[in-house]
Design a binder for these strands. Structure first.
Lengths: 233, 233
DNA sequence: ACCTGAACACCGTTCAAGT
DNA sequence: ACCTGAACACCGTTCAAGT
């Protein structure tokens, strides 16, 4: 997992004569994720990560290309936590479980959500999840165009599901650029500040708050799968 | 549009004796969006926006609470560009057109996509789009739980659709924290760098690249609607 | 009331040295 | 070969003045 840049060596493999590196890229990854989970996104810094590893900021550049690479490392750690289900049973259930497992993995790290949205395309772990999803759709008999559409629908539903409701994030000590309150809360606040308009939105508030997030998400995935089946019966 | 913080006065309404403000919040919004579109996200700065308006950075704080508020202003401008369709014809087509219109509005500002993902919950313009979508679903006879699920599905598909393929962004002069290459490109690069694994993903590359982004997106919306219909016939 | 420069406490990253 | 402090060119924002 997470071998991002071939130019950076993995682990303690000292080639030639020099000293072995003080720590591995995996340790950088773990330290970064811990900081994000514990202190929030705004605290993720070259300096804070280096400090957690007991070195100076510049030492990180032996393991990480730049700040974007560090962020990718965090995203990769989050997505690597996806508990992919075995490929048995009907393909519909299999697809559903893959999406829910991915959603749950991201939800375990609410502070990392903005990073996941922006950098999942660079994460090798995202490839593994994507491959599982694509294979499940193949197993369902979809091919070519139908498979591409279905793949994009399910990816969009999963990513969009995380984005809309990234989970209860403890208010970070220092507010990140992404804001302390997440979408749903902010949305409801906005709605509350203008109580005369938006009747259709307001009518949904009651039913929405009566449902558990995971149930809402699972149902959106089921509806997506139903739509896929109907398109390719 | 975009009255975010009641503490900040709109436009040139000088109350009492003092001098009138040199510019309006709307002008800040326009200047910020222009910078994002032209120079990319990394160039959006209190100082660059202020400079575009011919003042010092601190003057912005009369119109904007902080940097996050400035970003919300950009998001609001993007979403306010949504060309909402009239509410006639069948509700399915109406819903489809709302989603496509939203997707197109965001796609007109590819550099702003990360901002939209992170801050749409704070945008009044997002409320307007959401209300239109909710009303269309009501018109389709959905109510309570079914409406909430359908709303979340369509929102997820739209947001996720933008995220997965935010459109061709001219390489910014200075690369932003979000990276110059967008998801799809990065993903294909990653895939190409490991040509032995991920057969199911690789099998989709051909069909995927043969389809126009808008066609893919429209089809995912149609499938989502089909799934909604099946759940609430 | 509104504007604004100076200054503060940060960033990511380059550079030039250390061992 | 690997590490690292100093330094550079930035940030967002506070503060204390200006008019």
């Amino acid at each position: 997992m997470s071998r991002q840049n071939p130019a950076h060596r993995e682990n303690g493999s000292e080639d030639a004569v020099g000293r072995p590196p003080k720590f591995s890229r995996a340790q950088v990854q773990q330290a970064a994720l811990e900081i994000v989970d514990r202190d929030g996104l705004a605290e993720l810094t070259m300096r804070t990560v280096a400090n957690a590893l007991g070195t100076g900021a510049m030492t990180l550049y032996g393991h990480v290309r730049d700040r974007a690479d560090l962020e990718t490392l965090v995203v990769d750690a989050v997505l690597a936590g996806t508990d992919l289900p075995p490929a048995d049973g009907d393909w519909q259930t299999h697809v559903e479980e893959i999406c829910v497992a991915t959603w749950e993995a991201v939800r375990r790290h609410p502070h990392a959500v903005p990073l996941v949205l922006n950098r999942r395309g660079h994460s090798p772990a995202a490839l593994i999840v994507g491959e599982a999803l694509a294979a499940a759709l193949q197993r369902g008999g979809l091919d070519g165009k139908a498979q591409v559409i279905a793949f994009r629908t399910l990816l969009a539903v999963t990513v969009g599901g995380v984005e809309a409701d990234p989970g209860p994030s403890a208010v970070p000590a220092k507010m990140g650029a992404d804001g302390a309150t997440r979408f749903d809360l902010a949305f409801q606040e906005l709605l509350a500040s203008d109580p005369t308009t938006y009747p259709a939105l307001r009518a949904m508030l009651g039913p929405a708050n009566a449902l558990a997030p995971v149930d809402i998400f699972r149902e959106t995935v089921r509806q997506a799968i139903a739509g896929i089946e109907r398109a390719s019966p």
